[in-house]
Amino acid sequence: MDHPQSDDPQRRDANRVVVTVTRTGGIAGRRRLWRAEPPPDDTARWEELLGRCPWDEVAAGGAGGDRFVWAIRAVDDRTREAELADARLQGPWRELVDAVRAAAS
């Protein structure tokens, strides 16, 4: 019996996107973690969100006292990571973090 491509484990892994966001720091120093693993039919939208983020342009920088630091890790056909001070969480980075937080809730 033939199975649809979506039942093929290799096909599923090829369409898999996992994004984790960890926020540390702040006045209380609490650590928060959000994780999104969208269904395969939503992969294109997430790939577009990931593609708009300037992964290669992330410069290390101090967050400053009592500020948040955001660690973002995306795994699709490759693994990308970025660590951003709260002040740098703008534009496509903010959109990606907001999407992960919404998907995780």
Rank of each mutant, 00 (worst) to 15 (best):
S6I: 14
D7H: 13
D8E: 02
Q10L: 09
Q10P: 02
R11S: 08
R12M: 12
R12L: 14
R12G: 05
D13V: 15
A14C: 06
A14F: 08
A14V: 10
N15E: 13
R16Q: 10
V17Y: 01
V18F: 10
V19E: 00
T20M: 14
T20W: 14
T20A: 14
V21A: 03
V21H: 00
T22H: 01
R23T: 13
R23S: 12
R23F: 03
R23Y: 02
T24M: 01
T24E: 04
T24K: 02
T24P: 05
G25L: 00
I27Y: 12
A28E: 14
G29Y: 03
R30S: 14
R30F: 09
R30C: 10
R30M: 10
R31T: 15
R32Y: 13
W34H: 11
W34F: 13
W34M: 04
R35A: 14
A36S: 08
E37I: 13
E37T: 15
E37Y: 12
P38K: 06
P39E: 15
P39F: 15
P39H: 15
P39Q: 15
P40N: 04
D41T: 13
D41P: 07
D42G: 08
T43L: 10
T43H: 11
T43E: 13
T43N: 07
R45N: 04
R45V: 04
W46C: 01
W46D: 00
E47A: 06
E47T: 07
E47N: 08
E48Q: 11
L49R: 11
L49G: 01
R52A: 06
R52D: 07
R52G: 02
C53A: 04
C53S: 00
P54W: 06
P54Q: 09
W55M: 02
W55Q: 02
D56N: 09
V58H: 04
A59D: 13
G61A: 14
G62F: 15
G62K: 15
G62W: 15
A63M: 06
A63W: 09
A63E: 03
A63C: 05
G64S: 07
G64V: 06
G65V: 05
R67E: 07
F68M: 07
V69G: 09
W70M: 01
I72D: 00
A74S: 03
A74K: 04
V75T: 11
D77R: 10
D77P: 01
D77F: 08
R78P: 00
R78H: 07
R80M: 07
R80E: 02
E81D: 13
A82I: 02
L84W: 06
L84S: 05
A85D: 06
A85R: 15
D86H: 10
A87P: 07
R88N: 10
R88M: 05
R88F: 03
L89Q: 05
L89T: 05
Q90R: 12
Q90W: 06
G91Y: 08
G91D: 12
P92D: 00
W93K: 03
W93T: 00
W93R: 03
R94N: 03
R94K: 10
R94G: 03
E95D: 13
E95Q: 10
V97N: 02
D98P: 00
A99H: 05
V100F: 10
R101Q: 11
A102V: 09
A103I: 06
A103P: 01
A104S: 15
A104W: 15
S105Q: 14
